[in-house]
Computed example of a mutant assay.
Amino acid sequence: MSADIVSQFIERLSWDKVARHIAAGRPAILPIGAAAKQHGFHLPLNTDRVQAEWFAAQLAERIDALIWPTVTYGYYPAFVEYAGSASLSASTFEAVVHEIAAGILDGGIGTLFVLDTGISTLARVDRALARFDPARVTHLRLYQGPRFSRVAGQIAEQRHGSHADELETSLMLALAPDLVEPERAEASPVLRQEVPGRLTPSDGNSPNYSRSGSYGDPTLATPAKGAALLAAILDDLDEQVSVALGKNAMRPQPGTSR
């Protein structure tokens, strides 16, 4: 990671340097990405955090933003049967996000981007941010943009999926290949029916049974698919941020190995 990118993370700066950056009007990014959430046999528990901080660094480089420490615990009830996976209650998670965001804004930040890598967290983060001025706070839904959805639909070969699957594993192969163990990837069973709720590694009769914890088929993942998805997400982020800032967010060609 370059020295310029390191300087965007406030946890690596002294408080007086942070104060000077805030006084200069730099925006802030608050990444949300689990560090204790199973991602199958082939990906680490901090997969969401890795993605959140990678995209935060990319975005910060484009708009000269400061990055606050990642919120690594959240509302992830679907995964608690898998060892190491943790989930806060919805109310606790909402309170945590609200209080952190309030502290950032009270500290003098004029514009805050909350970068969210979750699915179950989306509605909760919306609720946490609802009382803030929308001109100052923007919820960036990392995997909800139109370009990502279009590219995902074009390249996906799996019949179902949404977690540690073909798409998420492809992303990780592109941005952090050293963290992926492709030989350990295991597809979840063919769904008899899609039932919202917790995945389970032990109840073979459950429609949500997945021995590995994957929901989809990560064996179909490739770095090329991941690179296409990364580019789509960055374009979606640029559009959202440009609207929020009222100007074009110029960006260089994205790297895929930082």
Score class of each variant (00 low, 15 high):
Leu245Trp: 08
Gly33Arg: 01
Arg20Lys: 03
Asp4Gln: 14
Leu199Cys: 02
Pro189Tyr: 06
Ala231Pro: 13
Thr169Pro: 00
Arg124Trp: 08
Arg258Ala: 02
Leu59Ala: 12
Gln144Ile: 08
Gly33Phe: 01
Asp236Gly: 14
Val125Thr: 13
Ala176Glu: 05
Leu122Tyr: 08
Ala3Trp: 01
Leu140Val: 02
Pro77Lys: 05
Ala86His: 09
Lys247Thr: 10
Ala90Leu: 10
Gly204Ala: 10
Leu112Phe: 01
Ile109Thr: 09
Glu53Gly: 03
Glu168Ala: 04
Trp54Lys: 04
Phe79Gly: 01
Trp68Met: 09
Asp236Asn: 14
Leu234Ala: 03
His21Asn: 08
Ile32Asn: 00
Phe55Pro: 00
Ser162Glu: 10
Leu140Trp: 02
Asp48Leu: 07
Glu168Asn: 00
Trp15Lys: 15
Ala36Leu: 07
Ala57Gly: 04
Leu191Gln: 07
Ala174Arg: 10
Val190Leu: 13
Tyr82Gly: 08
Asn46Val: 03
Glu186Asn: 06
Thr92Asp: 11
Ser188Pro: 00
Asp238Pro: 14
Gln253Asp: 13
Thr92Trp: 05
Ile22Tyr: 04
Ile63Val: 08
Thr47Phe: 11
Phe41Thr: 01
Ser202Arg: 14
His163Trp: 07
Ala244Glu: 07
Val137Ala: 09
Phe9Asp: 07
Pro27Thr: 03
His39Ala: 10
Arg192Glu: 10
Thr117Ser: 12
Leu234Met: 13
His163Lys: 04
Leu43Asp: 08
Phe41Pro: 00
Met1Trp: 14
Gly74Arg: 06
Val180Lys: 02
Ile100Val: 06
Lys37Trp: 08
Pro44Lys: 02
Phe148Val: 13
Pro223Ile: 15
Leu167His: 11
Ser242Glu: 11
Ala57Gln: 01
Phe55Glu: 03
Arg198Glu: 14
Gly40Phe: 07
Ala60Asn: 01
Thr222Arg: 12
Ala123Gly: 06
Ala130Phe: 13
Ile63His: 00
Leu115Cys: 09
His98Val: 02
Ala52Thr: 11
Val180Gln: 01
Phe113Glu: 03
Phe132Thr: 15
Ser89Asn: 08
Ser149Leu: 10
Thr70Ser: 14
Ala224Leu: 04
Thr200His: 05
Ser7His: 06
Leu167Asp: 07
Asp238Cys: 12
Ser210Met: 04
Leu13Val: 00
Glu239Leu: 13
Arg49Thr: 13
Arg184Phe: 03
Gly103Val: 03
Ser242Ile: 11
Ala228Glu: 12
Glu186Thr: 14
Ser89His: 12
Pro44Trp: 04
Trp68Gly: 01
Tyr209His: 15
Ser188Glu: 05
Trp54Asn: 03
Val96Ala: 11
Ala130Ser: 14
Gln193His: 08
Leu45Ser: 10
Val80Gly: 05
Val6Phe: 00
Leu220Asp: 04
Ile10Met: 02
Met1Asn: 08
Pro223Ser: 14
Thr70Gln: 08
Thr70Ala: 13
Leu179Gln: 06
Ser257His: 15
Asp238Gln: 15
Gly145Asp: 10
Gly33Tyr: 02
Ile22Glu: 08
Arg184Ser: 04
His21Val: 00
Gln8Asn: 11
Ser91Met: 12
Val190Lys: 11
Asp235Ala: 15
Glu183Thr: 09
Gln193Lys: 09
